[in-house]
Amino acid sequence: ALNRGDKVRIKRTESYWYGDVGTVASVEKSGILYPVIVRFDRVNYNGFSGSASGVNTNNFAENELELVQAAA
């Protein structure tokens, strides 16, 4: 299972961040479909780089994520 702070690569092909590595911000335990919230260094097309207006978190299912580096 994934944990907060883990570095993960995104495998959801239609995602803006496909192939990117993000950090797990939190994992919901309530049984929702996309329980893993991942935070990225770059914002998506809703904002400009360096601006706070873009979105830099997204929810994924565990099977859409590949663990790159476990949290220390």
Rank of each mutant, 00 (worst) to 15 (best):
A1R: 15
A1D: 08
A1N: 11
A1P: 12
L2N: 00
N3Q: 12
N3A: 12
N3R: 15
R4P: 12
R4H: 08
R4K: 12
R4T: 12
G5V: 02
G5T: 02
G5M: 01
G5Q: 02
D6K: 02
D6L: 02
K7H: 07
K7M: 09
K7N: 03
K7Y: 05
V8N: 01
V8I: 01
V8A: 00
R9C: 11
R9V: 10
R9M: 09
K11T: 10
K11P: 01
R12C: 05
R12I: 04
R12H: 05
T13E: 13
T13L: 13
T13H: 09
T13M: 14
T13Y: 10
E14K: 05
E14G: 12
E14N: 13
E14R: 05
S15D: 06
S15A: 01
Y16S: 05
Y16G: 03
Y16P: 07
W17F: 04
W17V: 01
Y18T: 03
Y18V: 03
Y18N: 03
G19I: 04
G19Q: 10
G19T: 03
D20F: 07
D20T: 07
V21A: 01
V21S: 00
V21E: 04
V21T: 07
T23S: 04
T23N: 02
T23Q: 05
V24G: 00
A25V: 15
A25L: 15
S26M: 10
V27D: 01
V27C: 03
E28V: 11
E28F: 08
E28D: 14
K29L: 09
S30G: 11
S30M: 07
S30N: 10
I32E: 14
I32V: 11
I32C: 14
L33S: 10
Y34R: 14
Y34C: 08
P35H: 13
V36T: 00
V36I: 13
I37Y: 07
I37R: 11
I37H: 09
R39Q: 10
R39V: 15
R39P: 01
F40H: 00
R42M: 04
R42I: 06
N44K: 12
N44W: 15
N44F: 15
Y45S: 15
Y45I: 15
Y45F: 09
N46T: 11
G47Q: 09
F48G: 15
F48Q: 14
F48R: 02
F48Y: 13
S49K: 05
S51P: 12
S51K: 04
S51A: 13
S51G: 12
A52G: 12
A52V: 12
S53I: 13
S53V: 13
S53R: 03
G54I: 07
G54Q: 04
N56E: 07
N56Y: 11
N56K: 05
N56H: 07
T57V: 11
T57C: 14
N59V: 06
F60L: 02
F60A: 02
A61S: 10
A61C: 06
E62K: 06
E62S: 07
N63G: 09
E64M: 01
E64V: 03
E64R: 00
L65M: 02
L65R: 03
E66R: 02
L67C: 04
L67E: 02
V68W: 05
V68L: 07
Q69F: 08
Q69L: 12
A71C: 12
A71H: 12
A71F: 11
A71L: 09
A72E: 14
A72R: 08
A72Q: 14
